[in-house]
Design a protein around this nucleic acid. Sequence first.
DNA 1: CAAAAACAATCAAATATGTGATTGACATTG
DNA 2: CAATGTCAATCACATATTTGATTGTTTTTG
Lengths: 254, 254
Amino acid sequence: MISNRQDMIRNYLFEKGQTPVQTLADVLGASLATVRRDLAEMEQAGSIERLHGSARIASGAQDEVAFDARESANLLAKRAIASEAAKNIIAGSTIFLDAGTTVLQLAKRIKLLGMPLTVFTNGVVVAQELAYIPEISVNLLGGRIRPENMSIVGPLAERMIDDLWFDQLFLGASAIADDGWLSSYDADEARLNACMTKRAQSVYILADGDKFSSRATYNVFCLSNAMKLITDVAPNQAFGSFAQKADLDIIYAE
Amino acid sequence: MISNRQDMIRNYLFEKGQTPVQTLADVLGASLATVRRDLAEMEQAGSIERLHGSARIASGAQDEVAFDARESANLLAKRAIASEAAKNIIAGSTIFLDAGTTVLQLAKRIKLLGMPLTVFTNGVVVAQELAYIPEISVNLLGGRIRPENMSIVGPLAERMIDDLWFDQLFLGASAIADDGWLSSYDADEARLNACMTKRAQSVYILADGDKFSSRATYNVFCLSNAMKLITDVAPNQAFGSFAQKADLDIIYAE
DNA sequence: CAAAAACAATCAAATATGTGATTGACATTG
DNA sequence: CAATGTCAATCACATATTTGATTGTTTTTG
């Protein structure tokens, strides 16, 4: 249970910020000595910083923890959606995989497919997941790395995508409002996602139930009946009426 | 010693290919049961394939093992060279890091520098190493991923590099012949490396002693006195005379 | 500078893990 | 289909690791 407790410490520090060692020991039901040992290890590994009597997430590791947290959030739903999405992939085609955590699960599914494919992606982790599969040729967009989710964004990436064409695009969503608009927390990412949809034959949006009825800062585009939405639960009334009006193609996983 | 033994199995299978379980048990001095358990784990993890009575490296994992092996080969020398190279980096500059295992060690050193930097690289692992450092802006070249060392190569990468300019370029070398020619095992990588040198103010070549007096298939370029070579041991007679004639700038680490 | 708190180091007990031998089930081969 | 070899599961034993208490030292703070 060692790594488990360290994960708990990480998560606690991430949520509550700087915390006294005593508090951590209380919360975890472990002794001070044990907590201190864990903290020493984690400091060595660079994921936290210790002060006298307390600890906090290392300034550089914030994004890393956040990414891990998002990856495991609603994991079962993401897996189900990914499996459903994978059914639509045909051997020999050229597909684009977005850089979200849901799409990362799709990459893990694709790995098991054993199909020849050409994959483009702007997700560094996605690329790494597929790189060693001999049947799959993996290409990465160029540009600035956005550490929050290890995605590649910026003008260099946008320009590169303009010269490409994909059979299928698999896009994760940060937030989907009831009026059908997708939005993102990062301006560059929103722009890039919008660009992608213009360069693909067919577009799949992957979103678990948590993403509905929420908005992020930057609009990406509005769902249309040219796209397919893959999700795990039936959306609410308000979105449902939009979906019906827009004749939206919704696929339910599991 | 658990992971150690599994590493030994991996390496043995990598060198000798498909091997009976009995042989592995003999070589490792462990019981059949233990070896089988290890094999079961490693199969689960996807790094090997088991047949009846024997095992071999999984077809997809060849490159991964080879990369790990290269990373730990002559590690101390690489670290020393990396430390020496890091001394030349000045805060606020824009540098390019190649995708080799020696340069990966340099990235690990840079991580500890705590300097603001703009880093471009064609090494996915290098990019990942630095991505979470807040002071450092990391940019990745776009293009095809060459799984052998997780580098990005190909025409897309070459085109992208043509629009960029770097203060310093740090280049790893696969092989350095006695006549001063660098060479590489991959055509694309050789081309890309050659391109890089034209886009940088100053060029540093990082090469441990193992790289001297050897040649790979594809020529990259010939060392000149416009470049600096960082290495750990004095090269041999033949190379020495070339270095003197070319007025080569050689920096010795450690 | 003195009191209080936090710390690292050490130790013994508890727990977890790795290990080889044995068994019966399964697969391969002639 | 029979003989051989390979396998996964289980057991008991040995070894490593984790853990909390205790110690003396270091750091902080009033």
